[in-house]
């Protein structure tokens, strides 16, 4: 019998750079999933991903109904981009999506952030992007630990068994 050496994941550093509902959820599910497994977790929100941790925006994230080829009608037909351009359609689609997620016990974004930090995960905002969007610490969710530079974030990503994931 040959011994297989295993190198378990010890830390994940996730970068969330997009503000679409699905991209933010991807980052949150992966971050929370890591926390649940007892893996050290750090999430860096930058550029449009900042919407996920901005108090004013975090409850109003949308999924794109234009230019999204995977977007389908409830019956499975392709969703015409022209429809997606109509006022209110994007909000409606996003609202249906949120209802379906609630039914599966998938938390809202603010709740997800709380779950991640409750389990010891850490959330950070990008200094450069907050400057650009003129956001201050008080504009961000209370779950955000700090506003840091990309260099400082890399500084947190050291150690064996660490992976950086970009969503």
């Amino acid at each position: 019998m040959t011994e297989k050496e295993e190198y378990p994941l010890k830390k994940v550093c996730i970068i969330c750079a997009k503000g679409n509902l699905e991209d933010v959820y991807a980052a949150c599910v992966m971050a929370n999933g890591a926390v649940m497994e007892g893996i050290e977790t750090k999430v860096f929100f930058t550029f449009f991903g900042l919407d996920a941790i901005t108090k004013k925006q975090m409850n109003h994230l949308h999924t794109a109904t234009v230019g999204n080829p995977a977007m389908r009608m409830p019956n499975g037909w392709a969703f015409p981009s022209v429809l997606g351009m109509l006022p209110g359609v994007e909000a409606g689609v996003s609202s249906i999506m949120k209802k379906q997620m609630e039914a599966l016990d998938i938390p809202t974004i603010p709740e997800f952030l709380e779950m991640i930090t409750a389990g010891g995960g850490e959330l950070y905002a990008c200094k450069l992007a907050t400057d650009m969007f003129k956001l201050k610490k008080e504009d961000l969710s209370d779950e955000v630990k700090d506003i840091i530079t990309v260099g400082e974030f890399y500084g947190l990503c050291g150690g064996q068994g660490t992976q950086i994931i970009f969503t």
Binding site: N32, M36, D105, P107, E111, M115, A118, G119
Partner: peptide, 9 residues
């Protein structure tokens, strides 16, 4: 039912 951390919370 499926067990989730959220439900425990």
């Amino acid at each position: 039912e499926t067990l989730t951390i959220r439900a425990i919370g």
